[in-house]
């Protein structure tokens, strides 16, 4: 890259506004990252009201994001009580977001090579097991939008749908280490396009009627 291109990028695109990292989310109802960084006044009110201690204040290592609220999905997911959206004084969190379906901060993505359920299904199909298979379904059982955001395909393996809000409860509960289900933030700018290309996450053939049929 030529020097003038670097200068152009630094001056035209604010380098402070890109905070993409897997499993690190904004609170529910957060506006798009570019807008969020402009609006968040670092008052810690969302952190104060959070009854689950899901929200953490970013430290000095986070650079320009210092003081902003983050959810670290591996530590504690968001339980979507929506208290934080009601106290934000500047509108960095949308006050109109009162229901969990309105929130969309990310999408879950299952790593099929380490998920116990996928290993189990594979072992069943092949007839050979490696000893780490388990009919686990923890993510399915813990999902607040059960059978909507996540369903069990053929009653065997969990599949994420478009309705996933990215609350991160499944990531918190996932028993594998590192986690087999991860949240990819959708509004954090930066590398989201690239990340989703590398990790195809959505089952295109799925629709809600199907789930109910499979479920019954």
């Amino acid at each position: 890259m030529r020097f003038i291109d670097k200068v152009r990028i630094i001056l035209n695109e604010n380098p402070f506004y890109s905070n993409f990292k897997i499993n690190r989310l904004r609170p529910p109802g957060a506006v798009e990252e570019r807008e969020f960084m402009r609006l968040c006044i670092r008052c810690a009110r969302c952190i104060e009201v959070c009854p689950y201690r899901s929200l953490h204040r970013a430290g000095a290592a986070d650079g320009a994001a210092v003081g902003t609220p983050y959810i670290y999905a591996e530590e504690r997911g968001c339980y979507m009580c929506m208290l934080c959206t009601q106290v934000c004084p500047t509108g960095a969190l949308d006050k109109n977001a009162t229901a969990m379906q309105q929130m969309s901060v990310g999408r879950a993505k299952i790593d099929e090579t380490t998920c116990y359920d996928y290993l189990y299904a594979k072992a069943l199909a092949e007839g050979v097991g490696g000893g780490t298979e388990l009919y686990c379904n923890t993510c399915y059982n813990s999902c607040p939008l059960q059978a909507k955001a996540i369903y069990l395909k053929n009653m065997e393996v969990p599949v994420i749908t478009e309705e996933c809000t990215g609350c991160g409860v499944c990531t918190e509960r996932c028993p594998t280490e590192p986690r087999s289900i991860n949240i990819i933030p959708t509004q954090m700018g930066g590398n989201f396009e690239r990340e989703t290309k590398e990790l195809p996450i959505f089952d295109a053939d799925f629709n809600t009627d199907n789930t109910v049929k499979e479920w019954q």
Binding site: Y17, R38, R42, G67
Partner: peptide, 9 residues
């Protein structure tokens, strides 16, 4: 200039 409301820190 930076677009970051950091003064309260």
């Amino acid at each position: 200039i930076a677009g970051l409301p950091l003064l309260n820190l």
